[in-house]
Structure formats: structure tokens, C-alpha cells
Design a protein around this nucleic acid. Structure first.
Length: 110
DNA sequence: CCTCTGACCGACA
DNA sequence: ATGTCGGCCAGAG
């Protein structure tokens, strides 16, 4: 069930588990998958996930809580809008109270 | 088939 | 504290 799945599929699964109004980081997901050094791939996986509607890539930001992938959301502030719609305050592509809305898959999940 | 890059993170000087 | 480099997996040329 979860042996033949590739890295991407695992990332998608975790992203779908992200509760509304919460955000996580690429490294957190990568670390949860057992590949903290593959954080780059997590973002890349999201790039493919943008084709999927079940994967809220806008809830995934970098370690600084910055919307680094905002550029990939159509080149507009769509990502920031979505986050604010969920109650997340964003300032200049940077999430305020990031640690307050931070969702750790290794902590919340198990 | 081989090479390169990609929405990052952590370590080192 | 700031800047640079390496690392991981997978897809495209």
C-alpha cells in the first residue's frame, strides 16, 4: 500500500492532511518522509501537484514561512489570498505568527 | 543513455 | 552574522 509509492505520492498525501488554516514547510514534509535533504524535491512535487486539486500547495511554504512558491501560483498574489482566506495573516509573502499556524506532520500525525 | 535542473535546508568558513 | 556549497529524487532534453 505504501511501499511502491514514489516520493511524490507521499508528499501529496501529507499535503492533503494539512488542516485548514495551517501551514507546513518543505523540510518538515521531507523530514517526515525520511529525506530532509530532499526538501527541494518536495517543492518540485508540488509543482506536479498543482495539476491536482486535492493538494493544497498554497499551505506549503519554506522554513522562513515565506511564500517562495507564490511565483508558481500564476505569478499573482493568489497564494497569499488563499492563505488569508483561511485566516492566515501574510505580510509581503511572509506569514506572520508562522509558528502559530505551523503544522508539523511529525507532531500532529505520528 | 547521459546530463541538468528544480517552489529547499543545513553545514561550514 | 553573511555567503557559499553540497545533497537528495525524479522528470525533461
Amino acid at each position: 500500500m505504501s511501499d511502491k509509492q514514489g516520493f511524490f505520492e507521499k508528499v501529496y498525501e501529507v499535503c492533503r492532511k494539512i488542516p485548514e488554516g495551517r501551514v507546513t514547510s518543505y523540510g518538515a514534509i521531507a523530514k517526515f518522509l525520511g529525506a530532509a535533504k530532499s526538501a527541494r524535491m518536495v517543492g518540485w512535487a508540488m509543482n506536479s501537484s498543482k495539476n491536482l486539486e486535492d493538494v493544497p500547495a498554497h499551505r506549503v511554504v519554506n522554513r522562513n514561512g515565506m511564500l517562495t512558491g507564490k511565483s508558481h501560483f500564476g505569478g499573482s498574489n493568489a497564494m497569499q489570498q488563499l492563505l488569508e482566506e483561511e485566516g492566515i495573516t501574510v505580510k509581503e509573502l511572509q506569514i506572520t505568527d508562522f509558528k502559530s499556524v505551523f503544522w508539523d506532520p511529525g507532531k500532529e500525525l505520528s
